[in-house]
C-alpha cells in the first residue's frame, strides 16, 4: 500500500519526518484528510491539530499557523510551532493561555497584540490536542 511522507518543519527544527498512511490537518477552509496519491495542492493551515495515522495508530501533534505543500507521496507542513501531544506540558500551555488572555485585556500596541494573539492561538491549539479524548 502506498504511503505518504509527512514532514513537519519549523524555522527552528525538523519536528517530524516519517511515512504515514493518512494525515488530517486543519486547513484554512476546513479540516482536510490526505491519503496517498492526493492531487498536488498548496494551501494554508491554521493553528490546530494534525493527526498522522500509521498502521492504525494515530499520532497527534499541535501546530501553529503555516503552509502545507501536498504532492502524491508527500505532505510537507511548514509552521511556526509544532509539538507532539505527549510533549505538551499542559500546565505550561494553560499558563501561557492565561497570561496571553490577561495581556489581551491590557492596552496593547498593535505589534504586541499580534504577538500575544499568536501565542494565545498556539497555546489553545496545544491544550486542545492535549485534552482531546478526556473531560
Amino acid at each position: 500500500m502506498a504511503t505518504l511522507k509527512l514532514e513537519i518543519v519549523t524555522p527552528e527544527a525538523k519536528i517530524y519526518s516519517e511515512d504515514v498512511d493518512l494525515v488530517t490537518l486543519p486547513g484554512v477552509e476546513g479540516e482536510m484528510g490526505i491519503y496517498p496519491m492526493h492531487v498536488a495542492l498548496l494551501t494554508q493551515v491554521t493553528a490546530g491539530e494534525v493527526v498522522a495515522v500509521k498502521g492504525g495508530q494515530g499520532l497527534h501533534l499541535a501546530i501553529g499557523e503555516g503552509f502545507v505543500q501536498i504532492t502524491g507521496e508527500r505532505v510537507a507542513i511548514m509552521t511556526d510551532m509544532a509539538i507532539r501531544a505527549e510533549d505538551i506540558d499542559e500546565n505550561r500551555a494553560d499558563e501561557a493561555r492565561r497570561r496571553a488572555e490577561d495581556r489581551l485585556r491590557e492596552k496593547l500596541s498593535d505589534e504586541e497584540m499580534v504577538a500575544v494573539n499568536a501565542s494565545l492561538i498556539n497555546s489553545l491549539a496545544q491544550l486542545k490536542v492535549k485534552r482531546r479524548g478526556r473531560s
Binding site: E29, A40, L42, T43, Q44, F67
Partner: peptide
C-alpha cells in the same frame, strides 16, 4: 507538479 491552490494562488502568495 501542477499545484492546486486553496484559496487561490494570489491569496496564498499574499499570506506567504
Amino acid at each position: 507538479f501542477e499545484y492546486l491552490f486553496e484559496p487561490a494562488a494570489p491569496d496564498v502568495f499574499a499570506a506567504l
